[in-house]
Amino acid sequence: MNPKSFEYHAPKSVAEASSLAEEYGMDAKFLAGGQSLIPLMKLRLLSPSHLIDLGRIPGLSYIRDEGNHLAIGAMERIAEIARSDLVRKQCPILSQCAHQIADPLVRNMGTIGGNLSHADPTNDMPAVMVAAGASIVAASGQGSRVIPAGDFFVDTFTTALKGTEILVEVKMPIGPTRRGAYLKLERQAGDFGIVGVAAVLEMSSDGRCVAAGIALTGVGPTVVKATRAGEILKGVELDKNTIDRASRAAAEEAQPSGDLRGSAEYKRAMVEVMTSRTIQAAARRQAER
């Protein structure tokens, strides 16, 4: 099983990569770690004539603490995020999510930028980004812009990136009042999840939830932001009744379709269960501190 033939390009800068994308248009694809793209090319579901490898552009792999957010370079490997002490301390939800993506070998190649740009509705990182209100930095030869994660995921395999834009950095909000968790239900190790839930809570000093972001993996054409679920949690204490109501709301907001991982009805039921568990896990994270 091999990909169809293609021309290979190894630009040395983002600007060069962007101008190659402009030159070849729809015939070109960017290659990050390749853990989603290469399988698609081997199955001939995708056969770009030009492959633009971002792997030789220096300076795109880093994790930096910038005070109110972590800045993560697009080519940072999922495995590095999973094993980073900085991420585990400052942004446990991201660490927790990274550990649950695929398997350790895939995580060694896969990158955060590739995971997000691919915009597979069953990829785990998008829900974490949307729940946390992260920002995504896109660059081209002409400069860069910041896209809120909530606006980034447009449809299945479709993002707000223009053809010549490259995802270069993720800004993940952090802070002492934020608590997050990401849980997923999967059939077996390494498989795509059946349902995943990201919850990020902003807590006040008296233990109330000031704001909440809930987002769902695998139950829609792209990541689903469960807005009503988040609103139910806002401004109240997180008692059982509140969490139950928010979980039911999330299940209603999900747009699952049946496939080999389960019927739509089953997935909707699992969204309710997993949302409840995830909110509780995020709240427990607060108690641990």
């Binding site: 099983m1 290659l31 390749g34 853990q35 290469i38 399988p39 081997k42 350790p104 070998l105 895939v106 060694n108 190649m109």
Partner: peptide, 8 residues
């Protein structure tokens, strides 16, 4: 460790 069937 990487899966060399999925690396160019």
């Amino acid at each position: 460790g990487v899966k060399s069937c999925t690396v160019l």
